[in-house]
């Protein structure tokens, strides 16, 4: 068995007396899509922020490719290859696709202190990367605001991949999208996985998780309820684990399995 690229062992996070995470264990293999499921308030966002370096865990261990690491800022995590795509804060709508793609890591040309943006290079690479992800841009100068929600997520994912992400954390990438756009994002996830990148797919939609997930971990009240491999768990089981069992089962019966 290969070592996981990212491993979180018994992670705890306390905010004063509030315990947000009480022992979460989680790992991602290269080329794997590991779905992290959980209802609102289960501690998903705290856990994401811990993985991406925005929070320092109170207890537990974090390993990258087998080595223990301690992140104090998102920048450090990013440098180690952990990229996070937030659901709504990924892109700046009024700026062009190319400018968004390169934001923070702009290619420059020039000499000495006189440096300017290398638009030719930036645009060419942006177009090519977008094409690889299945988006045909009219022009790289097109504003991100003209893209659909799914395409915006794809641009953000393509950006993270291009800049060398080894682990890609996707925070509810499909929650605000329609059916067709969701399908596009799921396809993108599949493409990324095939490049050997470990994907952490956070969602509360079991069907989206089942569509691309290799492994599934359910988070409930700051704890992991266990990890299951694809084919060893049904969507009904995942659903009831997420909601904490009992009550939902009754509710589901009366709703005729529509949730």
């Amino acid at each position: 068995m290969t070592t996981p690229i990212l491993e979180m062992i018994n992670i705890q996070k306390h905010f004063g007396r509030i315990i947000a995470l009480s022992g979460v264990s989680f790992s991602v293999m290269p080329g794997e899509c590991h779905c992290l499921l959980g209802d609102n308030g289960a501690g998903k966002s705290t856990f994401i922020k811990t993985m991406s370096g925005a929070h320092t865990p109170t207890g537990g261990e974090m390993r990258i490719a087998g080595d223990t690491v301690h992140f104090t800022s998102p920048r450090e995590a990013l440098a180690a290859g952990i990229a996070t795509v937030y659901q709504d804060l990924a892109m700046i709508p009024l700026m062009s696709v190319s400018r968004n793609f390169w934001l923070g890591r702009e290619p420059e040309a020039g000499f000495g202190p006189l440096r300017w943006l290398d638009f030719k290079k930036a645009d060419a690479i942006t177009l090519e990367q977008m094409k690889q992800m299945g988006i045909n841009l009219r022009e790289p100068g097109q504003a991100v605001g003209t893209l659909s929600g799914g395409e915006r997520q794809t641009v953000a994912i393509a950006r993270a991949v291009y800049f060398g992400a080894k682990v890609l954390i996707l925070d509810e990438p499909t929650s605000a999208l329609g059916v067709r756009q969701t399908a596009n994002v799921l396809t993108t996830i599949d493409r990324v996985r095939k490049k050997g990148i470990g994907v952490v797919f956070i969602t509360h939609n079991v069907r989206h998780a089942m569509a691309v997930g290799d492994r599934f971990t359910v988070l409930n009240r700051g704890k992991t309820l266990g990890t299951a491999d694809r084919g060893h768990i049904s969507s009904e089981e995942l659903q009831s684990l997420m909601a904490g069992g009992q009550e939902l089962a009754q509710l589901e019966a009366s709703l005729g399995k529509t949730i």
Binding site: P74, I92, P93, M95, G104
Partner: peptide
């Protein structure tokens, strides 16, 4: 442009 367009998104990158 980024700082004015969406400060949080800009900070994220």
């Amino acid at each position: 442009y980024a700082a004015g367009g969406d400060p949080q998104a800009a900070r994220n990158v």
